[in-house]
């Protein structure tokens, strides 16, 4: 059976191999259930995490350029479509913007090629897992594969920043009123809670310099989702997940958190795995600060397939 799965090259990045291992595993399991297989490119390096905003910073493009090169080689050797799938919003942003910069300014690519002593031909198309589901698989087809009743879950889609901005370069969705996660959640049968904080910043890498600010920003997002009646939040970014999750865990029980109690933060692939009837055991729910299993118990019990739910 596995022979029929479409081979899609995949770039993980640093967080997916450590903090966000549950994100990677659930994404890979879901892919197999849907009909494609993510193959990690043979060699890869860190993408640098944040795209350099200053235009003269060519050094910042060297790392992502090297990844695009490796991906190109991977595809050429196997004679497959030159897609590169990513999960992390930061990686997606960095790789896609690098690719865009090379298309806009071929001189930059020339310089980088000379520096890396290799020739990137610009064939790689960087796609996010969500984008792949929407454009290649199709959300309506995805809906037909759902095996568990998710309708008891009220989930707020949280986009964050780098998945969508800058729109001109990312071209994934509207940066102020995006719908891709909404549509995804609808397809897998959740109740979607549209809330205004969906594109607000969680504090991002400021956690390294000013954790208090991150707590405040993350708290605002959680509080807002809670006010709009959400049971859980869903995100596509490992840093958003950990900022929101940790800030909720840290402030739980203090005066700041009167309204929000135990609202878990899911990766969208973790919910997808539940909906598709997969075994969620390897998806590391136990590593979340806010335990997500209790909220899932209803879906897991009603599921068409038996599953070793922890509860």
């Amino acid at each position: 059976m596995s022979k029929n799965l479409t081979h899609v090259p995949y770039y993980p990045g640093c967080s997916l191999k450590t903090k966000a291992l549950g994100y990677e595993r659930s994404a890979m399991d879901c892919a197999k259930a849907i009909g494609f297989e993510m193959h990690e490119i043979a060699t890869w390096n860190c993408c640098g995490a944040s795209f350099p905003l200053t235009k003269d910073n060519l050094m910042g493009l060297a790392a992502p350029a090297n990844i695009l090169l490796e991906a190109e080689q991977h595809c050429q050797e196997r004679e497959i479509d030159a897609n590169l799938i990513t999960l992390c919003s930061f990686c997606y942003n960095t790789l896609k913007r690098t690719d865009f910069a090379f298309r806009e300014e071929p001189k930059k690519l020339e310089t980088l090629n000379a520096f890396l002593k290799r020739q990137y031909q610009g064939s790689i198309k960087v796609v996010h897992y969500l984008e792949y589901l929407r454009d290649v698989i199709g959300f309506d087809n995805l809906a037909k594969m759902v095996k568990r009743d998710m309708s008891s879950l009220r989930v707020a889609p949280y986009y964050g920043c780098l998945l969508l901005k800058p729109q001109k370069e990312m071209a994934l969705d509207d940066p102020e009123e995006p719908v891709i996660l909404h549509d995804f959640l609808e397809a897998i049968g959740c109740q979607v809670v549209d809330f205004p904080g969906q594109v607000d910043c969680c504090g991002s890498y400021l956690i390294m310099r000013d954790p208090e600010k991150v707590l405040e920003l993350s708290h605002n997002i959680l509080q807002e989702a809670n006010d709009y009646g959400a049971d859980a939040l869903v995100t596509a970014c490992p840093l958003c997940q950990s900022n929101l999750d940790q800030s909720e865990g840290e402030r739980r029980g203090s005066d700041h958190y009167i309204g929000v109690q135990g609202m878990p933060i899911f990766y969208f692939t973790q919910l997808l795995a539940v909906a598709l009837g997969l075994d969620t055991e390897p998806h590391q729910f136990e590593r979340h600060c806010i335990d997500p299993t209790s909220i899932l118990s209803a879906c897991l019990e009603d599921g068409a397939k038996p599953i070793e739910a922890k509860k």
């Binding site: 967080s15 903090k19 860190c46 910042g60 992390c88 890498y205 956690i207 390294m208 840093l239």
Partner: peptide, 12 residues
């Protein structure tokens, strides 16, 4: 901490 935060922090 999440790795990407540390990497970004180093850059910024």
């Amino acid at each position: 901490s999440t790795q990407q935060a540390v990497v970004s922090g180093f850059r910024k």
